[in-house]
Amino acid sequence: MHEMSLMESVIDIACETAREHGAARVKSIRLDVGVLSHVDPSALLFCHEAVRHGTIAGEATLEINRIPGEGWCLDCGKTVALQERFGACPDCGRHRVQMTSGDELKIRDLEVI
């Protein structure tokens, strides 16, 4: 389960960032997780419960925002919704679509005290 190592990194980054800004505790973490990122939000939530204890993020809540898949069709010249990686353009059916969102995993923001 790669979500465990991902969440360990998120907690490490959150704690380090909080300390750098003089905070004593991380209160909440908001993540953006793309629907095409191959990251399971429920597994992230489970791993969050396992890895946060014993850190300054020990009582932090976790909110996960799902980011839809989107791409730029080189043939149509417009932004289109993507339901899968390397999927065809829903308008013209061609596969010359560059993914522009939906594969991200990033910390949106932290609340610290």
Rank of each mutant, 00 (worst) to 15 (best):
E3L: 03
A43V: 10
H95Q: 03
G71C: 05
T100S: 13
A88Q: 03
C15D: 06
D109I: 08
V97G: 00
E16F: 08
K106P: 08
L105T: 07
A24K: 12
V112L: 04
W72C: 00
F86E: 04
E111F: 08
A14D: 12
L82G: 06
R108P: 12
T61M: 00
W72Y: 14
H48F: 13
E84V: 00
D103E: 12
S5L: 11
L31S: 02
R85W: 13
M7N: 10
G22V: 09
P68K: 05
M99W: 07
H95W: 04
D40P: 14
L105K: 11
E8T: 11
L44H: 04
P68H: 07
C92A: 01
C89F: 03
E111A: 05
E111D: 09
V35L: 09
M7F: 11
R19Y: 07
S9N: 10
G22R: 12
D40K: 13
R19I: 04
S101N: 15
S37L: 03
R30A: 02
I11L: 03
H53R: 14
S37R: 07
M1V: 10
V51R: 11
R52Q: 03
C73F: 09
Q98S: 12
K27I: 02
C92N: 01
T100E: 09
L45K: 15
A88G: 01
G71V: 02
M4V: 06
D75W: 06
L44V: 01
R94F: 10
E8N: 12
S5Y: 11
A88W: 00
A24W: 10
S5W: 10
A50Q: 15
V51M: 08
V33F: 04
L31Q: 04
I13E: 05
A18E: 06
I64H: 15
T100C: 10
H21A: 02
V10I: 06
V33C: 03
C76T: 00
G58R: 07
D109R: 09
Q98L: 08
I113G: 15
A88I: 00
E70N: 10
N65T: 13
V26T: 04
C76Y: 02
C76S: 02
H95A: 01
V26M: 03
E63I: 07
T79F: 13
S28F: 10
V26F: 05
T17A: 08
I67Q: 06
T100Y: 10
C76D: 00
G77Y: 10
G87E: 00
G54Q: 01
R19A: 03
V33R: 05
S28D: 06
P90D: 03
P41F: 01
R85H: 14
S5H: 13
E16I: 06
C89N: 07
I29M: 14
G22S: 07
M7Q: 09
F86L: 01
P41D: 00
G71E: 05
E111Y: 05
L31M: 02
E84G: 00
D32A: 15
G34Q: 10
A81V: 15
A88K: 02
L82W: 09
N65I: 13
I107R: 13
I113F: 15
I64S: 09
S9M: 05
C47W: 04
G93H: 01
V80I: 12
G58M: 03
I64C: 08
S28E: 11
G77I: 09
P68M: 01
L31E: 01
K106T: 06
I56E: 02
D75Y: 09
C15S: 06
